[in-house]
Amino acid sequence: MNNPALSKINSSFVRKSGVNRRLDSGFRILGIASTAFGLVVLLVLIIDIFLDGADRIKWDFFVSFPSRKPELAGILSAWVGTVWIMVLTALIALPLGIGAGIYLEEYARKNYLTNFIEINIANLAGVPSVIYGLLGLGLFVRYFNLDRSVLAGGLTLALLILPVIILSTREALRAIPSSIREASYALGATKWQTVQHQLFPAALGNIMTGVILAMSRAAGETAPLITIGALTYIAFLPQSPVAFSGGFPFIHFSLQGLFDPFTVLPIQIFNWVSRPQKGFFADAAAGIIVLLGLTLIMNAIAILLRHHYQKKVRW
């Protein structure tokens, strides 16, 4: 066994494997360090925010309007505005986005035009949000004369998340094996029946995940709403859509609130941060905690939905 050639190969192998092992553990440490860096920075930020703002998180903070006195100021008009805008954005962007996604993935013929449209949608998803704000200002606020209303804000944010919803719908449909489509057609189903009974239910989990992630992005958007001019002190709520009073039929609905001015959480936070008084920093920090909580809840719902639908789909 004492072959000199073999022992030479052997020693070079040992030497090399030693280097590789060291490289391996080195990369491991590097990976841990970079993960830790991100986590520590995030943790420091969150702790800092909590130290500043946790005292302000009380019932009163949620049911008070903003005020010039930091200790009395609250986020009532801001969170109600955020809910209005979110609901409206979802109502507008969901049917349009999912519809367009299904069309482009299942119906549209593959040619230069659809290619062109696809590339543009992918690009739109990466356009800075302030550009959408300018579009909203020119189109909805000025041209359609909607003024700085809930409707103008909702439409602008719907435009912002539309490309993301279209893309995630298409991704979700593409992930479904083509054997499912073929099986459905083989049984004599039409295209719409295939989409309705097979593809859409199967894709719903992933679509909803994309939608909710897009919505939580919209919830935190400030730039487009400031651009359409919603940087405003507002100490009232949009007209409620339902009222229980008056004559028959005793429950009344109104869409007047759509045309009322509004404010949202990120704008309220922005407003407070730019004040000279120290007390408003605590208010801003508390507002950030609420916004953080809101996005965390939305992301958690996205994860739960995906989990739920993944379990449900069985062919």
Partner: peptide, 29 residues
């Protein structure tokens, strides 16, 4: 209901103000 319930919702009176960030704290107060 949307189209029948005009009078239940009183027309809201709104004062619209915009402009300087310097004057803002006073007008806000």
């Amino acid at each position: 209901c949307v189209f029948s319930a005009g009078e239940v919702f009183a027309a809201s009176k709104l004062v619209k103000i915009d402009g300087s960030s310097t004057v803002f704290p006073i007008t806000e107060a």
